[in-house]
């Protein structure tokens, strides 16, 4: 409840933030603060320096980007959930954002902070991986884009270099006619996902023509359900076919499934099959 002392800097621009981050050993970025401050209050984190990017205007806002959207790092979950552009082009992201935490958390928590924190039980990494989003970062060596699939590298770890900051997330538009869904097994206390499943499914002539399926909450990073996607390819989309495809998800976990006092790794893996099936059913029902 009482964070340790730190030095505070408020950055006015991305360039200044990068400079401050690189000029101060152990410095951390502060955006909405909803990932970092809880850890600092419990003194599980005590960074010597915080660089507040909360006022950096260039990090805010949602804009069209080709057929997709570009979402500034400081965009809150509530803004994403309420964005007409996101709802139209990547509805599954809006759906996931509307399920993060609770209303007050959604008003303050940001997409940039969320992905940089990289909690495997968070909702957005799962959906961004399914969408094939790109995390845009800026650092001393300029800007670069990192595919979501490559961005999350381990438990609370990511592909950012030291001193690099997330500036935006580029989300490709979902193909016309594709159905999408994010379903979540919510932890009753933390509201994080015990298991979260995102599905983007295109159907042509009653047959699945493409599918992107990703599961969160089970492993230390989002799990692409490649076996499910393979089973769906060219498959029918009736209830039995979706159930059969979903059950293949058990083959997609690499043996580092997480467990805790609330849900064991065995249980999470079993639930992944259920939630993937539900996501597929909802996505197919919404498509077309």
């Amino acid at each position: 409840m009482f964070p340790s002392q730190f030095t505070y800097h408020r950055a006015a621009s991305v360039a200044e933030a990068v400079e401050l981050l690189n000029g101060n050993e152990g410095a951390k970025l502060l955006a909405g603060g909803h990932s970092l401050l809880p850890m600092m209050k419990l003194r599980l984190a005590s960074p010597p320096t915080l660089v507040d990017i909360g006022q950096v205007a260039e990090l805010k806002g949602v804009s069209a980007d080709g057929d997709g959207v570009r979402i500034g790092a400081l965009t809150t979950h509530a803004e994403i959930a309420g964005s007409a552009l996101v709802q139209e082009r990547a509805p599954v992201l809006a759906e996931a954002a509307s399920r993060v935490g609770d209303p007050a958390v959604r008003n303050r928590g940001t997409i940039g902070g969320n992905v940089a924190h990289g909690d495997p039980q968070s909702d957005l990494p799962t959906v961004l991986t399914a969408l094939g989003a790109t995390i845009n970062a800026a650092g001393q060596n300029g800007e670069r884009g990192i595919a979501a699939a490559d961005f999350f590298t381990g438990l609370l770890e990511n592909a950012l270099d030291d001193g690099e900051i997330v500036t935006s997330v580029s989300v490709p538009g979902v193909a016309s006619g594709a159905g999408t869904a994010y379903v979540k097994f919510s932890h009753p206390a933390s509201r994080y996902s015990v298991v979260g499943a995102a599905a983007i499914v295109s159907v042509a002539n009653g047959v699945c023509s493409s599918a992107s399926v990703v599961v969160g909450g089970v492993e230390s990073t989002p799990t692409r359900a490649a076996s499910v996607e393979a089973a769906l390819a060219g498959s029918g989309v009736g209830a039995d076919a979706l159930a059969a495809a979903a059950s293949a998800v058990s083959g997609d976990f690499q043996g580092d499934a997480m467990g805790d006092v609330y849900a064991s790794s065995e249980y999470r893996q079993a639930m992944a099959g259920v939630y993937v099936r539900r996501a597929l059913e909802a996505a197919v029902a919404r498509g077309g």
Partner: peptide, 16 residues
């Protein structure tokens, strides 16, 4: 309510 939107004021620094 922080700038019109509810926030948990225990998870915001005063300076923010």
């Amino acid at each position: 309510q922080l700038d019109g939107a509810i926030a948990k004021s225990c998870t915001v620094l005063a300076v923010q």
